[in-house]
């Protein structure tokens, strides 16, 4: 029995998996753990020399890269089992069989990871903390992802906010874009800068006003914006009161006396509008 610990690092897993495969160690004889510290890239160079004699489909590598970001400690073992079946088990097309139990499981994990990257793009809320001498603004955000997605999710912010400085802090790694240089640092246990941003109040005014109390669809809201994200969304603490008040607001509208129609104003434009020539439909 061998024990391998890639931590949360895909490259380490890949190097280890390649070696095990070359030595024909079957999945049942490997114990995969996930406790090691972040990637040790230096060590990897050694493995890259005799690389790529084992050709695996590109689709597997894509899948594996995503699954690697998943928080499930079983992911490394699952990936190795799939890799083994493809490379040693004669199941060359396995990756195409989305209904195979192991592929289905990996695809579900991939979906979870993709979805969380998407939610990171959606729910990171920057707070402004200052400006430098040249007027370049600095922002910070605190986000709590379930999976290890900070690196994969960051390029989006670089593209969108290239001309601001910002840091995104999370328990699973932090990203910093300062002076147009991107750096990653280990995660932190709690939000390091808790000052609120005054703009959050204006944002809450918007959230409250754009909500239509006459159409409650709570399930829809919660599927798309799961509760676990709420604690870092400044607008989320309005949700309960908006729901509670909605019934009364709608009843009020239904009980309202209908307003009479006001006569047409004297307005040159409305006058002109009435005298416009007919346009045939489809013209």
């Amino acid at each position: 029995m061998r024990t391998v610990d890639p931590g949360d690092c895909f490259e380490t897993w890949r190097a280890a998996a390649r070696r095990l495969l070359q030595e024909a160690v079957p999945p049942a004889e490997v114990i995969w753990e996930g406790n090691a510290l972040p990637c040790l890239f230096e060590e990897l160079a050694a493995y890259k020399v005799n690389a790529d004699k084992l050709v695996v489909p590109a689709a597997f590598m894509d899948l594996a890269k995503s699954v690697a970001c998943h928080a499930d400690p079983d992911r490394w073992a699952l990936l190795y089992r799939i890799l083994w079946r493809i490379a040693r088990g004669g199941e060359r097309s396995l990756i195409e069989i989305s209904s195979d139990p192991e592929i289905a499981k990996a695809r579900r994990m991939e979906k979870g990871v993709r979805r969380e990257i998407h939610k990171m793009h959606a729910f990171v809320r920057f707070r402004k903390v200052g400006e430098d001498d040249e007027g370049r603004e600095r922002f910070v955000a605190w986000f709590e992802p379930d999976h290890f997605i900070v690196e994969a999710g960051t390029p989006f912010f670089v593209k969108r906010f290239a001309n601001m400085d910002w840091s995104i802090f999370t328990p699973k790694g932090c990203a910093h874009w300062i002076g147009s240089v991107l750096k990653f640092s280990p995660g932190c246990a709690a939000d390091p800068c808790e000052d609120p941003d005054q703009m959050e109040d204006i944002w809450r005014v918007y959230y409250r006003s754009i909500f239509n109390p006459a159409r409650l669809k709570l399930k829809m809201m919660q599927t798309e914006m799961p509760k676990r994200y709420w604690k870092n969304l400044p607008e989320a603490d309005l949700i309960d009161s908006l729901i509670t008040e909605s019934r009364e607001r709608v009843d009020g509208m239904l009980a309202e006396t209908p307003r009479a129609v006001r006569p047409i104003l004297k307005n040159a434009y409305l006058e002109k509008l009435r005298n416009l020539p007919e346009v045939a439909e489809g013209e």
Partner: peptide, 13 residues
């Protein structure tokens, strides 16, 4: 596009 929030009417912001 990205939905940055959802209101209780199920609509995306």
């Amino acid at each position: 596009g990205i939905c940055h929030s959802y209101t209780p009417d199920g609509r995306c912001i």
